[in-house]
Design a protein around this nucleic acid. Sequence first.
DNA 1: TTAACGTTTTCTTATATAGCCTGATACA
DNA 2: TGTATCAGGCTATATAAGAAAACGTTAA
Length: 182
Amino acid sequence: MVTIVNVVGSGDLGVELELQTLGDDLDVPFTEYNPSNYHGLYVRLVEDGPLITVYRSGKYIISGCSSFQEVETTNEGFLTQIASLGIYNSSPDLGVTVQNVVCTEQLSSAIDLNTLSIGLGLETVEYEPEQFPGLVYRPPEIGAVILVFANGKVVITGASDVTIAEDAFAQLQSRIQSLIEN
DNA sequence: TTAACGTTTTCTTATATAGCCTGATACA
DNA sequence: TGTATCAGGCTATATAAGAAAACGTTAA
């Protein structure tokens, strides 16, 4: 069972926003709008909680969530804040779409990455230890990327659902098992 | 050669991971 | 002053968003 460490989602309010005014009006513990640094408005509903990046177009990104439920509750909290300012009329269609899930896992033992890179096939692997200590594996036909480290720790990213991340890890384990057997 | 326009890249955020490098601090 | 230790930043990965910069191409 993979452990979710970060979920990124996006949504759209469907209205143009004045970000400076919005940042001033929101009743939340943290907002930051510094267009000379970045053109998005940063919002946190909870101190050190998930970050919401809001754009002038009304589109927004939620990042830093540790579960799908947290993405939903953060989105609902944000929409409630927006609705209280009269910026839009609350609509059940205003949902959030999960775009990326980052998970961690642990292989049963440490692994030699040079051997693994050869066994998995160079067309699906990138491994340049002098540049980055992890091996990058792209499982065929699975929408996720896996980082494998020599101590057996694994990071799965790019998946839009946790089941995709689990499938990707399962495929990695299967490939490693078949390499051991052969 | 220069201007104008179109396309591409970079930036920012969150998060795990590990190795390397640099700078700061502490102690002999 | 020299050495040791520690902290922090950078490297890579994915993803959304859109402004701005950096390109490349075309025409005058």
